[in-house]
Amino acid sequence: MTAETSTWATKKGLAQMLKGGVIMDVMNVEQARIAEEAGATSVMALERVPAMIRAEGGVARMAKPSLIKQIIQAVSIPVMAKCRIGHFAEAQILQELGVDYIDESEVLTPADEAHHVDKHAFKVPFVCGCRDLGEALRRISECAAMIRTKGEAGTGDIVEAVRHIRTLMAEIRRLGAMREDELFVAAKELGAPYDLVKQVHDDGRLPVVNFVAGGIAIPADAALAMQLGAEGVFVGSGIFKSENPARTAEAIVQATLHYDNPKIIAEVSKGLGAPMRGIAAASVPEPERLAVRGW
């Protein structure tokens, strides 16, 4: 009776436990506790939320080990942390620190403009961003055990998140409607491995859990994402850049759970104070767009 750790089932299984929930960006222990108290299913430890990275510029790297350790000790829910795209040495350090999930994230400054981290080489599971099905399946072929659509992080504008989840879900439906002999060309056009394309065709869904990220700022945004097919949401700047983070966090948790019950969402949306101000994603100049990072 031998026990095997870090299997594919345990890696993608943890993401299955987070479904229907909210993963919140936090920058310190106090925020991590607020998030946990609000009902977050996980927290993402980082030094600057995307809106700050956007405003301040500079190179965005993984968070300091001391910060990650403090947050791990402060909460009992799973703790995630971000590494730069392709920066497998940062990922090795995050694994060593004992984080529960690594987000190989376009929000940080990419370290490699061709290669993502070979996630098969790690015991810790990874979540990766995508804008469409091809990108999602390329990441899964690298052993991403969870996917999130990217949106445009740090804007508080939901429009890119909507574009990405709609694109992804439409492409999944399209594959499902194809004849089996059409899947070979579909794989070529998606730039994704045939086996994964076939699996999506057969199952009508991604082989891993998919959340929506990038631009969720109010409860209605979370409900929109869920109704479009998200299995949960990441909220970055939307909580701790709002006037009342604790109440906003709790309201977004409730809206993610009761996404198809507008009566409840109306109720929890009352008295939250001002949401993050945000910037229209369309006004972000091309070189400053984060979603295009990742290959």
Partner: peptide, 12 residues
């Protein structure tokens, strides 16, 4: 422990 300690086994 943490996620790194998650595992699968056969159980009677």
């Amino acid at each position: 422990g943490r996620q790194l300690d998650s595992f699968e086994t056969e159980l009677s």
